[in-house]
Amino acid sequence: MSQPLNTTGVHHHAHHFDSADHEFQASKQGMWIFMVTEVLMIGAIFVGYLIMRARYPEAFHEAHKLLNVKLGALNTAVLILSSYTMVRGVSAAQRGNNKLTIRMLMTTIALALVFCVVKYFEYSHKIHEGTLPGGNYTYAELSMPHVPLFFSFYFIMTGIHAFHVLVGIGLMTWMIKRVKSGEITPEFFTPVELVGFYWHFVDLVWIYLFPLLYLLG
């Protein structure tokens, strides 16, 4: 292989690319396209939510009061902070400071776990109260029509988001393994950067979810 070898020689770009940078740019574009599909997939539920909210504003307003704004705000802060640690981790990888990358990735995972724990408490409280989606709604103190619909959206939107958080934890764990293997260098850091993108996207979704569900109802 005659392509410019990186210093460690661990990573070779695939045969159909001219250079490692060429491959990196292509991978990054692929990641952006993937994120577009995520925008449309999650966004479609937002559209459904906005339509139903516009149609039954009172019910959705009453229902949103049952959410815990403090826990929601706490989770927002946690996710924003985790986005910051992720950014530091990626730039450390780009500079070749793998130790810092691993530390930052671990912090990010820790913050993601905090998010999950808070979410767990919120969910178990809802299940206990009976503020559940659609036909499972049993909360006696608020029995307006269309209130259960709010909780359908709440559980689906936050549920899909939580699923993405769990996937993110898995990806970051994988990245720690790859950084430790010495594969990640200032010449080749594509996987770390792309996982970073993914994690910021998870944050970005929550940035919309939080006001829509918890604050504005």
Binding site: Q25, V36, L40, V47
Partner: peptide, 27 residues
């Protein structure tokens, strides 16, 4: 802020910004 700075869209290939933006446009 997240997309432009954390995800570095500001300094990226402009095609990527168009791609990401098109998602919101079609939504």
């Amino acid at each position: 802020l997240v997309a432009g700075i954390f995800m570095n869209l500001k300094h990226d290939d402009r095609a990527n910004a168009v791609i990401f933006g098109s998602g919101f446009l079609f939504l």
